[in-house]
């Protein structure tokens, strides 16, 4: 069976609302009330998200967040801390019943990350999937991704770096020295790149390329969130993603 996907075009939300929408949509899909969904979004204000097994205070300089007006949130997926600059990236989420996706976690990463690779091909940028969860261009990371499965629904979200302010990023993030030394690279700019460094592009070009890359060979329609999804997301902001108990859980 080929299900028809709902695509929610580029929107912007707070960090808590972005994460709450993922969970609300996943619940609606699990309940059979919503279609498999691809959403594209930005973070307004810019924000840092941490993986669900990280200590927020170990990973993020809360003082720098306050000074720079940057928000923060704990994701419900694993992985590392990510700085989501409003001007510097586009985030996506893919939410679908597990039966529509490969059974294995690595295989399903491979599939969705393949859509990102295709998106970048649309921009004539050669990229490749680097397991566990990265996309690289010229050997440098340009996209990080995280996946989970809840109540029979696969959720993968990730980000594509359009522009990169390394100084700002590492003012906000506390990078573990072990991670840098393990890769034998001291300079972050040698490990991470952004699309703007590859070629002259507007962020709208990146979104259009992602829209094509993610929807290729699929039946899909543009749609918006249901009233029920929005209400549930607002509830999740109040009860989870916007509160200290969740964000400072570890």
């Amino acid at each position: 069976m080929t299900a028809e996907w709902r695509v929610v075009g580029l929107q912007e939300n707070t960090a808590a609302m972005n994460m709450a929408l993922d969970e609300a949509v996943a619940e609606a899909i699990a309940a059979g009330k919503s279609r498999p969904t691809i959403r594209f979004y930005r973070w307004n204000p810019s924000a840092v998200s941490v993986g669900c097994f990280q200590s927020l205070e170990d990973e993020i300089s809360l003082e720098a967040c306050r000074e720079l007006g940057v928000d923060f949130v704990r994701r419900w997926t694993g992985g590392g801390a990510v700085y989501h600059d409003y001007h510097g990236e586009i985030t996506y989420s893919v939410l679908a019943p597990e039966h529509m996706m490969p059974r294995g976690i690595t295989e399903s990463y491979h599939m969705v990350c393949g859509w990102i690779v295709r998106s970048l091909e649309n921009l004539e940028i050669k990229a490749e999937f680097k397991p566990i969860n990265d996309i690289i261009v010229s050997g440098k990371k340009v996209s990080g991704n995280a996946q989970t499965r809840r109540k029979g629904v696969l959720i993968q979200h990730g980000t594509i770096l359009y522009d990169l302010d390394v100084r700002k990023m590492f003012t906000l993030l506390k990078v573990p020295k072990e991670k840098i030394s393990d890769k034998m690279i001291q300079n972050v700019e040698e490990r991470v790149t952004c699309l703007k460094k590859q070629k002259e592009l507007a962020i709208g070009d990146v979104y259009n390329a992602m829209l094509r890359g993610f929807t290729e060979n699929k039946k899909w329609v543009f749609g918006d969130y249901s009233k029920e999804e929005i209400e549930r997301a607002r509830e999740l902001v109040r009860e989870k993603y916007g509160n200290k108990e969740w964000n400072f859980m570890r």
């Binding site: 669900c52 170990d58 419900w76 694993g78 992985g79 590392g80 995280a146 499965r149």
Partner: peptide, 29 residues
């Protein structure tokens, strides 16, 4: 070829309190 694991632990003769942290993936979370 994997992720970072951090440990925060309190112990005497026995391990009393343990937090496993890091940027790994584990299901269900």
């Amino acid at each position: 070829s994997g992720k970072l694991v951090k440990i925060k632990i309190t112990f005497d003769e026995k391990i009393m309190d343990l937090q496993i942290l890091g940027d790994f993936f584990l299901y269900p979370e």
